[in-house]
Design a protein around this nucleic acid. Structure first.
Length: 111
DNA sequence: CTCTTGACCGACG
DNA sequence: CCGTCGGCCAAGA
């Protein structure tokens, strides 16, 4: 039995899309925002939502990175050990990370 | 309801 | 490549 958390409709969409991400693949905040059909700074809101992951590890928020190829942040840290752990997890899934950056043209998954 | 901050992105110099 | 500014959504205090 699951423990359904009460989240806003917007947050539910973000979590739902994260679950769609196949293993060995990553996506960006911008692609998520574009998939939601919103325009503007939706990616900022996504970052706030993913910061708290009530569906972890069912929702692999660590597969969501920046459009710049940077891993971004993890557990609320934009730059720290948590981010290093995130990188390690991605490498474990078969993603090659160079200098803390991911090859978007190779691993970027689009909805 | 109002204000601030944020796991961001893109353009400019 | 790096620093700075603008953008205008969402959640918390």
């Amino acid at each position: 039995m699951n423990s359904p958390k009460k989240v806003s409709a917007f947050s539910a969409q973000v979590y739902a899309l994260c679950r769609r991400i196949p293993q060995g693949r990553i996506t960006t905040y911008k692609e998520l925002a574009r998939a939601l059909g919103k325009k503007g700074q939706v990616y900022r809101a996504i970052g706030h939502v993913l910061r708290e992951n009530p569906f972890a590890p069912e929702v692999p928020c660590h597969r969501v990175i920046n459009s710049s190829g940077a891993v971004g942040g993890f557990r609320g840290k934009t730059n720290g050990k948590e981010v290093q752990e995130k990188i390690k997890l991605l490498e474990k899934e078969g993603i090659r990370i160079i200098n803390g950056k991911v090859n978007l043209q190779k691993y970027l998954f689009r909805f």
